[in-house]
């Protein structure tokens, strides 16, 4: 079984990586709250710039962020298209591409939303790529997330690979038995999905018992290296400075 690790850039060394995981989770959530509450394009541009600076400081390869942006782009366009259709319906106009450029009121709605979506993706990607997955779960638990969430997340992280493995094995077996490569009947999809689930569940129970026998209780042991440091305080002041700067620029405009 060979699979990529989800948090493959978390072992890099940068100021962002060295921040306490709790600080990163709290900053990310606070950042998302602030970005969601802002509506003006210049203010969002400041936060976008700040997010890009953090991305550069983190030393995580830029192509990793571009891949994530590309994943969300079709959804952002689809959502924008629906907003535009709504606009046309409510203003009883017929559809034309050329109209899109002259309807500033609908662009005023779409552009901030697309900016917010992209900023959010950058921030969440930065959080995940700069923090080891176990540290992220530890931070969530410390921030009083329900233990069922962190326990299940830990199991899911383990079981994703198990499920993919079972899926590959089943599809290999299916291909070796059938003269055609394509599964043509929905019933076959149903049986295959159920078969994969059954075998995965059986294996997951053994793995869970093995984890329990080695002391896994769903909690995450205290991690010595995760402590609030002066870097966390500097990051807090920097973040506050950016918020004040944005508010000042908005007020001036």
């Amino acid at each position: 079984m060979k699979h990529d690790f989800i948090d493959k850039y978390s072992t890099l060394d940068s100021s962002v990586h060295r921040l306490d995981p709790r600080t990163k989770v709290l900053f990310s959530l606070l950042f998302l709250v602030i970005v969601t509450s802002v509506a003006s394009i210049p203010s969002l541009a400041i936060y976008l710039l700040f997010a890009l600076v953090l991305v550069i400081i983190s030393k995580v390869p830029i192509h990793f962020f571009i891949e994530k942006i590309m994943l969300i782009t079709p959804l952002a366009f689809l959502f924008s298209a629906f907003i535009y259709i709504s606009y046309l319906i409510e203003h009883s106009r017929s559809f034309s591409i050329s109209m899109f450029s002259i309807h500033y009121s609908v662009l005023d709605t779409i552009v901030p939303i697309v900016m917010k979506i992209y900023i959010s993706v950058l921030i969440v990607t930065l959080l995940v790529s700069s923090t080891r997955f176990n540290d992220l779960l530890w931070a969530l638990r410390k921030l009083k997330f329900p233990s069922i969430v962190t326990t299940l997340s830990k199991l899911v992280y383990t079981y994703i690979f198990l499920f993919i493995d079972e899926m590959h094995r089943t599809m290999r077996a299916y291909r070796s038995r059938t003269p055609i490569r394509r599964i043509s009947r929905i019933k076959a999809y149903g049986s295959i999905t159920a078969g994969i689930l059954t075998r995965s569940m059986n294996r997951s129970e053994y793995i869970y018992k093995a984890m329990m026998s080695r002391g896994f209780s769903g909690e995450f042991p205290e991690c010595r290296i995760n402590r609030f440091k002066s870097l966390d305080i500097i990051a807090l002041f920097l973040f506050l400075a950016i918020i004040i700067l944005e508010k000042f620029i908005s007020w001036k405009m």
């Binding site: 233990s147 069922i148 326990t151 299940l152 569940m201 997951s204 129970e205």
Partner: peptide, 22 residues
């Protein structure tokens, strides 16, 4: 939803969450 879980429910929930994700 996570109250009073039996020990055999946890891995099943875990594998199902993984399945939904995949």
């Amino acid at each position: 939803g996570g109250r009073n879980l039996k020990s055999d429910e946890v891995p099943r929930m875990g594998i199902f969450a993984a399945a939904l994700f995949i």
